[in-house]
Simulated assay, not measured.
Amino acid sequence: MWEKQYEQGRWNGLALNILSTSLDGGKRLQVSDIPYADLPDIKVMGSKANNVEIDVVLVGSASLVEANALLDNLNTFPRGELEHPWLGELSLAFDAYSQKISTKRGLVTLSLKFVRDAKKPTLSITDNASTSSLEQADVVEAVSSVEFASDVENMSIAETNTLQSDFTHLIGELTGIASRLSIPSQMLTAINQEINRALMAISSIANAPSQFAEQLSITVDSVASAVRSESDSVNPAVDNSRAAQSSMLALIDVNSPSAHYNIQLVTAALKMNKDMDRLEQTSSFDVLTWSKPSSVTLHDLESLTTEIDARTNEVTSISTLESVALFDVLIELRKSVGTQYSKVKKGAKPQRYIERPRSIPVLTLAQQEGNSAALIEALNPLQHPLFLSGTIAMREIR
């Protein structure tokens, strides 16, 4: 009996008796028949629109009225949510329908065709963005790996060998960073296992570039997580986090066969920066409570913004769907870093300067100016607190 074959579903809150469901999808292919060639040239142009077709039944004396009301609702509000009994919630756009009316029990059957509605990424325009810089870096790596796979397919053997050499140097640098960390042995063992997996995956770049990119991201994440977990160094000059960021950026090669190599280096440097995570957890920068000179933090963030800008410029040299998507996520990453840079610059900016031709201790100066000795010392990190002289930065306590 057909009455026992349907299941309940809903479209934008309206109940549907779903009799059957069919799904349609695939890839969009551009097939070019090349003269005098046995095989055609086939390019994958992305995924087809996924179609969903459902058969809905309505029965009873008012079935035709209900069917017409449903069609009117679909035409008025073509986009919506389908609550399917076994497919879950689907975002769909109404496409077409066919209607079949039977005099038996007033049965009306509707075949409704929908297209899966893609969720388009949106860029936040507020300062309080919900996506952290680490999450945005993951997005950049994921988008870049798609173009990386396309680049590898079109590379010559020499270019592939060069790329393998580049990534070998990168993984070697990750090994050096991990060896300098003071972390538990279990964590170090786990990192070495990921590094070994990445080394073994290098040989498969030509055949499985996407899998290699995924493994490399996992390896970078494991090393970066260990870097951020390490306790702060008393001296910024020997800080492993700063050294790791600097070593990643030093490996950037503008002549690399694939832009993904340099993008991976930039995101790795960002993930190894401890300051970004701390800055994002506060609404403002307090120079008094910051563990290192603000000039050091500004220098590190400026290095990141410079390299992100360089990668963005490289992406704009071509115009494809993949490059446009990569441009969007790089701009968002640049915004995340720029927001924190502006926060530090604003919080560390002196309100005024005074001139002292002779040396004066910071405590004496603080008493004379009615200011905080700790704040004066923080604003002038390059001067000895007992021998302040020349142009001295000052700021009032709020």
Rank of each mutant, 00 (worst) to 15 (best):
L134T: 06
D127I: 03
P85H: 09
K120T: 10
I125D: 15
T131W: 02
S102V: 00
L74N: 01
P121Q: 01
L112P: 05
E83K: 06
A129D: 15
V115Y: 01
E89H: 09
K120G: 00
D117V: 03
D138S: 11
I101T: 13
V139Y: 08
V140N: 02
N68Q: 14
A137G: 15
S98I: 02
W86R: 07
K119C: 09
G106K: 04
E89N: 14
N68C: 00
R105P: 01
K100H: 09
G106S: 08
V139Q: 15
K113D: 15
N75G: 03
Q136W: 06
G80Q: 02
L74S: 00
I101A: 11
S102Q: 12
F114P: 04
V140H: 02
K120N: 03
D127H: 06
P78H: 07
Q136P: 13
S132D: 10
D117Y: 07
N73E: 13
E135H: 05
S132W: 04
E83M: 03
K120V: 07
P78E: 14
L71H: 05
R116Q: 14
A69W: 00
R79M: 13
G88D: 12
S132F: 03
R79S: 15
R105E: 15
L123E: 10
Y97Q: 07
P85N: 12
K100Y: 03
L107V: 04
R79L: 08
D117L: 14
D138M: 10
E135A: 13
V115H: 01
N68L: 02
L70F: 04
N128Y: 05
A67N: 02
D95H: 08
F77G: 02
Q99G: 03
Q99F: 02
L112F: 07
L92T: 00
H84S: 09
K120Q: 14
T76K: 09
A93W: 04
S91C: 05
Q99D: 14
K120I: 08
L90G: 00
T109R: 06
A118K: 09
S124V: 10
L112R: 05
S91L: 12
K113F: 03
V115S: 05
V139A: 15
L123Y: 08
F77N: 15
T131H: 00
S132E: 08
G80Y: 00
I125G: 14
D117W: 05
K104W: 03
T126G: 15
L71F: 06
L112G: 07
G106L: 09
T103L: 13
D127L: 08
D72T: 06
T76A: 14
V115L: 12
D117A: 10
A96D: 14
F77V: 07
A137C: 06
